[in-house]
């Protein structure tokens, strides 16, 4: 799509683009290409000289058991958060979509956690589940459960999954509700006349028609879990205990910060960039399909 009528000007458009392009080049392209370049270089221990080593940093990375552990952690974490937050949000949206009294109030009361910072969400849940003084943790302990996310890796994982899910429900709810409201009521009424009960109507008509929204949210949620949950992990567990909650993004951060392994850290960044680009590409292909649909 192009404008038929345009403004004439030779220098002006470049001046208008200058701020955005300058910031983009300095803070996006330059660092990204640095990461790419460093991932092929090996620096000595003092950072004085470096040599080109090709794909050695990547090879070294793929020989690290910790790297695959972080891949596994990321996979479990993102699957758990995505499945949990999507199902809870869909349930709530399906309920709010019925013509019940107070639906707008419920909507307001369900969407505000979007505005809570991930790190703050983590802190709230940490407080509830803090083994010695948390209200919920005390309840769990009185039930005879030896709850301790500070020592037990599985408990720590559950805690970050819960915090991340809690924060993401509002976003998914909003998009599911919009998706549900876009489904023509006549289709549902027709099925009702044919004698289909509400549950059957939901799974045979509503859910398939909702699939573009679901698919879109699937991708957005994976991106969310990959990148935006950094604050939750850092505030709640710091990647621990014993790296049980160290995701790929957290590993880039902690490897680059603690060890001076710039090449290895850069290689990890490059792999993450490839993952984001792949996810974005999937998302855009889907968006194109939706437009035709």
């Amino acid at each position: 799509m192009e404008k038929r009528s345009v403004i004439s000007g030779r220098l002006l458009p470049y001046l208008l683009l200058l701020p955005q392009l300058a910031i983009t080049l300095v803070f996006f392209y330059w660092p990204a290409s640095q990461a790419l370049w460093q991932s092929f270089m090996l620096e000595d221990a003092f950072g004085l000289s470096s040599e080109f080593v090709g794909l050695e940093n990547y090879a070294a990375l793929f020989q690290q058991p910790e790297y695959f552990r972080a891949v596994g952690t990321t996979f479990i974490f993102s699957t758990a958060v995505t499945v949990l937050s999507l199902s809870v949000a869909l349930l709530l949206a399906a309920m709010a979509d019925r013509q019940i009294r107070g639906a707008p109030v419920y909507k307001t009361l369900l969407i505000w956690p979007y505005a809570v910072a991930p790190a703050i969400a983590g802190v709230l849940w940490l407080f509830m589940f803090q083994p010695s003084l948390g209200l919920v943790a005390r309840g769990l302990r009185s039930l005879g459960l030896d709850w301790n996310p500070l020592l037990n890796g599985n408990h720590a994982m559950m805690l970050v999954v819960l915090s991340a899910t809690w924060k993401q429900i509002s976003y998914n709810f909003l998009f599911f509700l919009a998706g549900l409201q876009a489904i023509p009521k006549s289709l549902i009424e027709a099925a009702a006349i044919d004698g289909a009960r509400p549950t059957r109507r939901f799974w045979t008509i509503v859910f398939p028609l909702l699939s573009p929204t679901t698919f879109f949210l699937l991708v957005v949620n994976i991106v969310y879990v990959f990148f935006d949950t950094f604050g939750i992990i850092d505030a709640v567990t710091g990647g621990g205990p014993a790296k049980a909650t160290e995701t790929l993004v957290y590993k880039v951060y902690s490897d680059g910060r603690l060890g001076g392994d710039l090449g290895g850290s850069a290689a990890q960044s490059v792999i993450l960039m490839i993952i984001v680009i792949a996810l974005t590409a999937v998302q855009f292909r889907f968006v194109e399909r939706k437009v035709q649909y």
């Binding site: 683009l17 392009l21 960039m273 974005t280």
Partner: peptide
């Protein structure tokens, strides 16, 4: 070209380029 240069930045969240960006800043 300018449009695409801007567009591609959608794919580079700050988390994947933290240390090089930090160094530049």
């Amino acid at each position: 070209t300018a449009f695409w240069i801007i567009f591609v930045t959608l794919m580079l969240p700050v988390e994947v380029r933290i240390y090089p960006t930090y160094k530049i800043v």
